[in-house]
């Protein structure tokens, strides 16, 4: 375990961090009274009112449309960060190239919008 001397503190931290939740669960199990087994013990807690339905629900299919569009445009911005960080070194040509990149992304966004992918219907 201590093969990597630089990481000793990390491993000790990891050990402590994994012990704490185990301790928390075992202490509560140890201290809790054992005789209150009702049907309501296993229901999910919904702010004190009667729970409606199961906790595992299937999400509506419309969420996925937004999720798909979001994933694409979210991840493509990863290319803009390195460019923004070294904006002063790169000069005009990189600026034009980034503009072309953003232009193509905007075309994609307009396409998704015109085809109705962004409408909640």
């Amino acid at each position: 375990m201590f093969l990597l001397p630089k990481y000793n503190s990390f491993f000790i931290f990891l050990l402590l961090a994994s012990v704490i939740p185990i301790l928390a669960f075992s202490i509560s199990k140890f201290l809790a009274p054992n005789n209150t087994q009702g049907p309501e013990k296993l229901t999910s807690y919904e702010s004190g009112i009667e729970p409606m339905g199961d906790a595992w629900i299937q999400f509506q299919i419309r969420y996925y449309m937004f999720a798909l569009v979001f994933v694409i445009f979210d991840v493509e911005t990863v290319f803009l960060y390195p460019w923004a960080m070294s904006f002063n070194d790169l000069g005009l040509s990189a600026f034009i190239e980034a503009l072309v990149f953003v232009f193509i992304l905007i075309i994609g966004l307009v396409y998704a919008w015109r085809k109705g992918a962004l409408e909640w219907s």
Binding site: D89, L90, G91, S93, A94, E97
Partner: peptide, 10 residues
Amino acid sequence: MELELDLSFF
């Protein structure tokens, strides 16, 4: 870091 991006237009 040497960057020669301007060359790419040629």
